[in-house]
């Protein structure tokens, strides 16, 4: 069963999902959104609080920039509030994550337009980020790690947006293919193909020879 649905069932499947829950049980997503539709901002904020980690993780994984991800997540929450009337009672979490995914895609398209319009815009593409902490590493080792990180980010940036998003959802966020299909609005066959192609491209860009593979192994599995 898809992970999103499992999570959903834990939240929406609790007593009170039909709107008649006892006061001691926390309200379900559906109840919170129903109150939010009536203008209850506190109820909406409770819904946001419940899912913000997933939304921010999604945006951070796709955009590879924590600060930018915060902005996009905030924007997605505001969009969700404004689109409450269009919420059809589907999975609330998937609905919110879909809005966030679309906002990330909007931003990536905007970046691509700027990049094709001006070579300067490519400077903002990415910064080196490698979260593995290595307190005792030498300057040479640090330089090598940064170089590997740059290669990884460059290879990721070279992927088409749809392939990168599908790969990040599967490999970084741990979503299954059905969730990826639901969040990106793509068919299952398309999702399979995107993930496979993205992996093949990363593999040939990063692990083309034994030396590269050993370098990555050393830093990924310290």
């Amino acid at each position: 069963m898809p992970k999103l649905r499992r999570i959903e069932s834990r939240q929406d499947g609790q007593p009170g999902n039909d709107g008649t829950g006892s006061p001691s049980e926390p309200p379900t997503d559906g109840e919170l959104l129903a109150r939010a539709v009536d203008g209850d901002l506190d109820a909406f904020n409770e819904f946001v609080e419940r899912h913000q980690r997933a939304v921010i993780a999604l945006c951070t994984g796709i955009l590879r920039d924590a600060s930018l991800a915060e902005d996009v997540a905030q924007d997605a929450f505001i969009r969700a509030w404004k689109n409450l009337p269009s919420f059809q009672g589907e999975s609330a979490r998937s609905w919110l994550l879909r809005i966030a995914t679309n906002r990330c895609l909007d931003l990536l398209r905007q970046r691509n337009r700027q990049a094709t319009d001006s070579l300067d815009a490519q400077i903002v593409e990415s910064e080196p980020r490698w979260t593995t902490q290595m307190p005792s590493e030498s300057p040479e080792a640090e330089a090598e790690r940064v170089e590997l990180n740059d290669r990884l980010e460059a290879a990721l940036a070279d992927l088409p947006d749809d392939q990168r998003i599908a790969l990040v959802m599967a490999d970084v966020l741990g979503y299954d293919y059905l969730d990826v299909a639901e969040l990106t609005g793509a068919a299952m066959g398309t999702v399979k193909s995107r993930i496979s192609r993205a992996r093949a491209r990363l593999r040939s860009a990063l692990l083309a020879d034994t030396a590269s593979r050993e370098h990555f192994e050393r830093y990924v599995r310290p």
Binding site: N45, R53, A57, R64, A73, F77, R199, R203
Partner: peptide
């Protein structure tokens, strides 16, 4: 494929934990 997955995970920035309230 395992190596790529791990590389992607360790290189993904730590997501912000600041609370959002509209």
């Amino acid at each position: 494929l395992r190596l790529i997955r791990q590389a992607l995970r360790v290189s993904t920035p730590v997501a912000s934990t600041r609370p959002f309230r509209l």
